[in-house]
């Protein structure tokens, strides 16, 4: 397997996974997956159902520890299996099945997202020290800013579960952005969206790229991925079968096989 990390300048690399494997009982969910995400790009990860996309995603964000391999992020090894430290290192994520804090308002959801960047402890909170008060005010202001950024600030005081599906997706992105990530990882953000909502999502991701954020996008919507991503990797049965710009990946024979199946062997027929 070629190592693209060797061909590009080291500073340009934000994340590199090398030889990541993960097994669940008899199922090899990931087999020796290596890939490199460069700063400022939108990187797509696609594959048929059960290809290991979400498993890889969970290894990356610390929900699973890999059996083998390691992940370097921003020049440092990621601690495997410690989600809050990975969030602190600068990877924020959204979930395939939206996971908001249902009983909280949209604003509070985003404020929770900022938790890792805040310092107030028990004593500060009880005494409401000037530092704690300033931090709290700044957090609220920043949360409003992010809600405005994703376009739902008018819903700030609505309960999260009462938002429409598309707005919940946006809220989840705002919450992820609140932790000031260097890499925003979106797990099937367009799942269940109609064409208008997908269009809005695309605009939002383009805006994020325009503002210099690196985005990892796992998606079923091949059209969205091909139209949006700078580079795409394809997983099949836990293995990376291709990694390149969308136009090359689209014509890659193994990708076509993975998605459409192999042409029947004429001699066997």
């Amino acid at each position: 397997m070629s190592d693209p990390a060797g061909t590009i300048a080291q500073e340009a690399v934000l994340l590199s996974a090398s030889g990541v494997s993960k097994r669940f009982g008899g199922v090899q969910a990931l087999r020796d997956v290596s890939l490199t995400i460069r700063r400022g790009e939108v990187y797509g990860l696609i594959g048929p159902n059960g290809a290991g996309k979400t498993s890889f995603f969970n290894v990356l964000t610390g929900l699973y520890s890999p059996d083998e391999g390691r992940v370097t992020f921003d020049g440092r090894d990621l601690p495997p299996g410690v989600p809050h430290r990975i969030a602190g290192a600068g990877i924020a994520r959204t979930f395939q099945n939206i996971r908001l804090f249902g009983a909280m308002s949209a604003l509070e959801n985003v404020m929770v997202g900022r938790h890792i960047r805040l310092r107030t402890g028990v004593i500060g909170a009880i005494l409401r020290t000037p530092a704690a008060r300033a931090e709290e005010a700044a957090t609220e202001a920043r949360a409003h800013e992010l809600l405005r950024y994703v376009g739902i600030d008018q819903l700030a005081n609505q309960q999260a579960t009462h938002l429409s599906y598309g707005d919940q997706r946006r809220l989840e992105i705002a919450r992820a952005l609140a932790s000031e990530p260097k890499l925003l990882a979106l797990d099937e953000p367009a799942a269940g969206m109609n064409a208008t909502e997908t269009g809005g999502l695309r605009t939002l991701i383009e805006k994020l790229r325009g503002d210099g954020l690196t985005v990892l996008l796992i998606e079923h919507d091949v059209k969205l991925v091909m139209g949006l991503c700078d580079r795409v990797a394809v997983l099949d049965y836990g293995e990376k079968i291709a990694e390149d710009v969308p136009d090359v990946v689209r014509r890659h024979p193994r990708v076509i096989t993975a998605y459409l199946g192999q042409q029947a062997d004429p001699e066997a027929a």
Binding site: L63, H84, A92, F95, L100, F101, M104, E108, V112, S179
Partner: peptide
Amino acid sequence: VAIREDELAARACG
């Protein structure tokens, strides 16, 4: 409250 509502998401939030 975040832990009460969704522990996994709370962890992902740092």
